[in-house]
Amino acid sequence: MTIRAIRYLPALLCALGATWALDCQRPAFAQQLDARDLGDGMELFQIRPNFHVLIGAGANVAVQVGVDGAVVVDSGDAAHADRLVAEIKKLTPNHLIRYVINTSADADHVGGNEKVSKIGKTLLGDSPFGGPPNDGAAAILAGGDILTRMSNAGYPEGAWPTELFVQPRKYMYLNDEGIEVLHQPSAHSDADSIIFFRRSDVVMAGDIIDIRRFPVIDLANGGSINGEIAALNRIVELAIPSIPIVSREAGTVVVPSHGRLLDQTDVVEYRDMVTIMRDRIQNLMKERKTLAQVKAADPALGYKERYGSDTGSWTTDMFVEAVFKSLAADKSKQR
């Protein structure tokens, strides 16, 4: 038996050698974006060597890993929190999560804050009042008035942001790259932030883009249509397509709050749609049409078939009404 095995060993080695040689000759373009189906509607994309996006756990979640510890953007909804924690642990074997950054105060973005931050460890030392802040868990960073919103909504203290900022731009340098947190006042709401990973060249757009539907303009929480368009234009400016070598599929990756991964061209398409919708409704308002008349004029024709819905939590009717009221509020401010 042993002698037989020895007989075929050279052939086996040669075959292995051949396999190695062949593997080296595979065309480079055969390498597609690495995606793994995690079941239960969850999917994990590795979009850069150290950058992962998890889709399907509420809002899209990003995990940037590196020597300084992981930075997680958004934490999904509460229902998926345990599952999300398990997946993040696989990506960060030492569980060294340093930051959870929220792009929005909505439940599907902050629902897993407490559980995700607790498996991490803050970069900060002990506070003057005793132990480290947030009981040593990873810091939770957010722009705008998220804290008030979350405390009013009854979230446990452990889920609240531990680092808040109100200036337009906050920056960090972790895992060998600059990370910009850009607060967009009055877009989807008053608590939107765009997170730009400069070396990874990834933009986390949060609820400013929901590629499945018209953007949700949360008027009750400070959102506005013109702020939304300004935020979309900012993302267009941040993203760079493959220019001048246009035949290459490359460029900045833009991750919306929900749905598929995007590039600048996709964002321009979405921005154009939102701008045209605003212009159409604004024009009807100039003709002194009431809200009911505006709705009856069907300003979403041509777009509602792609982004609209008659049912669910955000219908075409609700979007048209939000744009109308937002523009009316802007007009009354100008008076």
Binding site: I3, I6, R7, Y8, P10, A11, L13, C14, A15, G17, A18, A21, L22, Q25
Partner: peptide, 21 residues
């Protein structure tokens, strides 16, 4: 017999590598 088979196997293996290219 073992030597002959081994030689054949080695030659076959190298031919495999060559063909791979």
């Amino acid at each position: 017999s073992i030597r002959v088979r081994t030689i054949i196997a080695v030659v076959a293996g190298f031919v495999g590598i060559l063909m791979a290219g």
